[in-house]
Simulated assay, not measured.
Amino acid sequence: MGTAEVAAALLRDHGRTYADEAGIRLRDKPSPLYRLLVLAVLCSTRIRADIATAAARELFSAGLRTPRAMADSAWQDRVDALGRAHYVRYDESTATALGEGARLLLDRWRGDLRRLREEAGGDTGALRARLMDVPRIGPVGADIFCREAQAVWPELRPFFDERSRAAAAELGLPRSAEGLAALVAAEDLARFAAALVRASLSKGSARGSG
């Protein structure tokens, strides 16, 4: 199986973004972008991705879909939403981080991550640095956000973090972002990056499926 065929198999079998799994219809609008940031916060602890996405869905179902709603919510309500998704061990500290992060977004970017994007001026490193000012978002969380946000912020493309590039190498695919980007259409880059991560977490792989 050639690299293009492996890429196609990955998209077919694993090509669902984590934003989609969390119920986020990602667009370049304040609420979906904020929900993606919340998902990145939730994925930044040592917890399974399916639990993180379930926790995101619980928070959003509770109406916590904007920085204002999150900032105005009770800390215990955030803890309870995380608990319903079995987001344990990190529920209390994450509830605190979500509240602090929402207030930071309101104070610094008026609740609109597109303002953060404008500040970065098309520079991915500058954008990642600003993201890491948000409580609980470190390099991994910033990578998760950028990996998914490239679907709506073209200046991030192609974005493949260390985890997705390592998974690509294990499958015999190019390790460089440019090499991987050559295998799929630009609009599929976010799905492809997610597929590589999902494949690395699954028992099977595109190579194993033939």
Rank of each mutant, 00 (worst) to 15 (best):
T66A: 05
A194E: 14
A169L: 09
S205R: 14
A49L: 15
S176D: 09
V140H: 01
R207G: 07
L11S: 08
K29E: 15
Q76V: 11
P174I: 09
S31D: 12
G172R: 04
T53N: 00
E178P: 00
P174L: 13
R35I: 01
E100M: 10
L59C: 11
V152Q: 11
T45D: 04
D77Q: 09
G121N: 08
D91N: 15
A206S: 15
D50Y: 05
S202C: 05
Q150M: 03
A120N: 01
L189T: 05
A199W: 13
G210E: 15
T17K: 13
R46W: 04
A97P: 00
R115H: 09
R198E: 15
R12F: 12
A206D: 13
A7E: 08
A62Y: 04
L116H: 03
T66S: 10
A56T: 12
L183F: 14
M70K: 03
P30W: 09
Y34Q: 04
A81M: 00
A40R: 11
A49M: 15
T66V: 03
F192T: 03
W153R: 09
R136V: 08
R175K: 06
S205Q: 09
A186N: 05
L98C: 13
A55W: 14
A54R: 12
A56V: 12
V38R: 01
A126F: 05
E162F: 11
R89D: 02
A168I: 10
A206K: 10
T17E: 14
A177T: 03
A206Q: 13
F192Y: 09
Q76G: 01
L171N: 06
E187R: 07
C43Q: 15
A167P: 08
Y90D: 09
D161G: 12
L116R: 04
V134G: 04
A168C: 14
A182E: 14
G2K: 02
Y90L: 11
R117F: 01
R165N: 05
